[in-house]
């Protein structure tokens, strides 16, 4: 398989991606294709390497071997900011925000590059209407409007999770990676988050790690299952539900989705 083959159809394509930390092999030859415009869930047991795979795709770690393409262009081992500027944005499983900036500032920071303000020190930030409006819009979307001026580090856990998603989607990137966006949320918070995710990823490509099977089967067009650093199955929710291999290797009795 050549990278060129997947040019237009695939937002992301991973070819034989491997990663080891020292002697420990964590990702063992992953082949994965994410079709442009689909919502794709990545599931698998704890420690399977899902977050590691996200880190490889987003440039946080270099791959040990293999290649990764975003919208047809090679992004293997590129720096995270380079990959981000090509239109990929990600969230983190462990909340990763700017704790001493206000909620509003967190969101405004997230759109500065995309709007072309780069490293400018010749313009007043408060005069940048587009940045302000964009941040306000995201603020409204993630339901933190009344927390606008609060320091991000002082938010509750659930609010920080919402902000985490906000920072990721604010720039309007067209490929979005969410790592366990609903982890630790209550039922109703989860519902709100899912509603938010499905709204903001409308017409975009979403790759999401998620433990809540209800959410997965609700949201995903396709699902891939990662076990011990290998994708053992990829397909529609129905196909995954039926797959013997998946049931044996991972899902077992949890297929009906009330795990964790």
């Amino acid at each position: 398989m050549e990278l060129g083959d997947t040019m237009n159809r695939h937002a992301l394509s991973l070819i034989d991606v491997r990663k080891r930390f020292g002697q420990t092999k964590i990702i063992n030859g992953v082949n994965l294709e994410i079709v442009a415009g689909e919502r794709h869930a990545l599931i698998g047991p704890n420690g399977a390497g899902k977050s590691t795979l996200f880190n490889l795709i987003s440039g946080r770690f270099p791959v040990s071997s293999g290649s990764i393409a975003l919208n047809g262009s090679d992004i293997t081992n590129k720096e995270p900011q380079v990959i981000n500027r090509l239109g990929l944005s990600r969230s983190f499983q462990i909340t990763n925000i700017f704790p001493k900036l206000s909620v509003f500032e967190n969101l405004r920071c997230s759109v500065l590059w995309v709007l072309g303000y780069r490293y400018s020190f010749l313009r007043r930030i408060s005069a940048l209407r587009d940045a302000k409006e964009s941040a306000e819009r995201t603020l409204e979307m993630i339901g933190l409007k009344d927390r606008r001026e609060k320091m991000a580090g002082e938010l509750t856990y659930a609010e920080q999770r919402a902000l985490e998603i906000g920072i990721t989607i604010a720039s309007g990137a067209n490929v979005i990676l969410l790592d366990e966006p609903t982890a630790g949320m209550s039922r109703s918070e989860t519902d709100t988050a899912v509603e938010l995710i499905s709204r903001v990823t409308e017409g975009k490509t979403l790759l999401m790690v998620e433990h809540d099977m209800g959410v997965v089967f609700d949201l995903a067009d396709r699902i891939s299952v990662l076990v011990y650093g290998e994708v053992i199955a990829s397909g529609t929710p129905a196909e995954i539900r039926m797959s013997k291999k998946v049931q044996e290797a991972y899902l077992g009795t949890q297929i009906d989705g009330d795990e964790e």
Partner: peptide
Amino acid sequence: FVITRTPLGQIANAVRDNPERTQFIGYN
């Protein structure tokens, strides 16, 4: 003072708080 109120000043604060995250919003 004015520099603190520019995109650069704001991003500098973000880098101070969490340099890694700034990479994932496009900054070096």
